[in-house]
Design a protein around this nucleic acid. Structure first.
Lengths: 208, 208
DNA sequence: GGCGGTATCAGCCAAAAGGCTGAGAGACCA
DNA sequence: TGGTCTCTCAGCCTTTTGGCTGATACCGCC
């Protein structure tokens, strides 16, 4: 049995240190590199070509986790990416899976769960924390209310307090398109104003 | 020189593990106990009587970090409590300091910062992460930015996603007055739109 | 008795947001 | 190959929001 090589990506040194300590107890898993930003993560993937990338989604300014996942998957489909984050936001789950994540773990996961996820990932198995899985399950029952990846992305930026114009500039689309997306988002969230959408998104979706 | 004993309190095993690994590199610091909730923390303080308690504020259901700090300080003033958390919410900082916290560190703090904070805490020195200190400083310098009770009430309703008309009806005031209050709130929060105000209120002020 | 802070309200105007209809391009799938 | 989904864009119109100026009233305080 060969050793599984892992790249850790998290902007908090404490979390990287903790993961490293936990994974270090497993003889068949080895942390070969760490990164604290999306940019660093891409470089580390090139340099170390790890089997599994364990990544937080929230990573301060610059490239966010979703974008990093997408780029990693674009360049090299060998790496399996595991999301390891604090919040089980509906929108983030959808976007992460869409970007090519193999699993989605919450930070309060038990060590065994994490080990199992890493081992499963290299075999192409997808592993979810129970709360995450239940959210996905619930969404399958109401497929009409599931945000598309683009809508989720827009909603995420919406919670930053941006105007339609700013949203358009940020996403390289026209203001008209922004308004179309927003109308769909409002309908799916069951709200009528952007203010209510933001409130709903932050509270219900766990966005922040 | 005697060894500083530390109790770690965080609901994420990964974070505890990481802190333990980091603090373990220091010969004069020893982690003697861990807890994953406020209740456990109180018991651990009784049992181990550590010199310093390093605690996250957000801890799932049950007693929150602030309450735990207050109770620890009530029962035994020997322990110094250091807050170690992810978000620099104005409200949380004020509440934590008020509850008796000796320091306030963010999770992206450098290891040296953490070590220094632990060592400082036992000597009665208070240590803040730079972003935290700057927030406190800003509040002291600019008391004008403190919301009046009425403004706070309005902001709280604002985060529900209500329109100006609805706000007026809810508070029994005219829409004109609502707009006046909002203008003041925006100025104090440093934002220009209601969307940004909601985002700021929920995130920074911890409203929810 | 005046002064500052708070809360209340009005009117005017420009900008932003939202509702509506319609439509083309590309992907995916049966 | 045709249907469906997603993402993109446009125009038109109404409503809402935000910026501004100015005003009245109450309250506590020196």
């Amino acid at each position: 049995m060969s050793v599984i090589t892992v790249l850790l990506v998290d902007d908090h040194l404490v979390v990287r240190s903790g993961l490293k300590a936990l994974l270090g107890t497993q003889p068949d898993i080895e942390v070969v590199a760490e990164a604290s930003s999306g940019e660093e993560a891409l470089a580390a993937v090139e340099g170390h070509s790890p089997d599994v990338v364990v990544m937080d989604l929230a990573m301060g300014p610059g490239m966010d986790g979703i974008e990093a996942i997408r780029k990693i998957r674009e360049r090299n489909r060998r790496q399996a990416v595991l999301v390891f984050t604090t919040y089980d936001s509906d929108a983030d789950i959808v976007r992460a899976v869409d970007a090519g994540a193999m699993g989605y773990l919450l930070k309060d996961a038990a060590p065994e769960e994490i080990f199992a996820a890493v081992r499963g990932a290299v075999q192409g198995k997808s592993v979810m924390s129970p709360p995450v899985a239940s959210r996905l399950f619930q969404q399958l029952r109401n497929p009409d209310d599931v945000l598309t990846p683009r809508e989720a992305e827009l909603l995420s930026l919406l919670t930053e307090g941006l105007s339609n114009k700013e949203l358009g500039q940020r996403l390289f689309i026209s203001e008209a398109t922004v308004k179309t997306h927003l109308a769909h988002i409002y309908a799916k969230l069951g709200v009528e104003t952007r203010a209510a959408a933001i409130a709903t998104a932050i509270r219900r979706e766990g966005m922040r």
